[in-house]
Design a protein around this nucleic acid. Structure first.
Lengths: 158, 158
DNA sequence: GGTGAAAGCGGGTTAGG
DNA sequence: CCTAACCCGCTTTCACC
């Protein structure tokens, strides 16, 4: 995308541009993605149009990346969650691993981490059997060893 | 089982009540929490009001737990993410640990897991120094040992 | 950077069939 | 589950501080 103005899209410089009011807006929207502009206006003491321009700016700069409904995975039938520590068996592939994994259904996140596993994944499936299928698929896709830690109960999240 | 004969809010019984249309609605809302009813109407082939009553039902039954804005933590200044494996040093406290941790700022999720650590936390802070403070706070709050894995880069999530 | 107001309309809400 | 009203709130665009 071409920039209209001199946008500084380095993450750190953006963070340093955010003031307390932006923080209030982000806190509210993080907990209620459908908060209205008038609600944000009340909470910040600004006018609706001022809040609106801030929200739009936050969206344009990528601070607000989108909006999601939070789904109760259990009530939806996705009952098995797990952490998977991933260690490459062939390190020449290491840099490609996240890209190879990102479209596999059930893998919710992929982080590279410091330490002996190279990556940590979080996954969710509808059954232990499906989790085994997912692990098999991972091993067919990339040359890695995995260590899976099954979640017994999610006490809280975000 | 032990409770109420007509209790319909058991997670499994709710999941079994969801049909394909509900699945379409949930998939869309999970990726776009601000999808309009008319968009959902197009996607499902139902009328707007039919979709609306389904969405409301999903909200009332707790399948849809809420709506959130997705914030780019780096651009917001929260640059340090980590996984913390938690092992109680005094197991008589184990059951209380999630409750003690849930109001600590920076702890994003807490899962009990199968295996030798009892819990897995995900945390975020604005600096390594703040992460150390968070770890100190955890140790002052509950009798546990911790093993922290720092995230170098988040490739994708949710 | 912020306010306030007016006009248009898109989408949520609530009827009746 | 549908259609058809109704109405609140988001958006845009002003002029202005």
């Amino acid at each position: 995308m071409a920039n209209n103005d001199h946008d500084m899209d380095d993450a750190r410089s953006i963070a340093s541009q955010l003031d307390d009011t932006d923080g209030v807006i982000l806190d509210i929207l993080e907990n209620n993605g459908r908060a209205t502009l008038s609600h944000l206006s009340e909470a910040t003491g600004l006018s609706v149009s001022a809040v609106q321009s801030r929200v739009q700016k936050l969206e344009r700069r990528g601070v607000i990346r989108g909006y999601k409904a939070i789904i109760d995975d259990e009530r939806r039938g996705l009952t098995v969650n797990a952490y998977i520590a991933v260690t490459p068996t062939d390190y020449s592939w290491e840099a490609d691993i996240p890209d190879k994994l990102k479209d596999i259904d059930g893998i919710m996140s992929c982080d590279s981490v410091a330490g002996s596993p190279s990556f940590m994944l979080t996954v969710r499936t509808e059954s232990p059997a499906k989790l085994e299928e997912l692990l098999n698929l991972i091993h067919r896709t990339v040359p890695v060893s995995t260590e899976t830690t099954i979640v017994l109960k999610r006490y809280f999240s975000m």
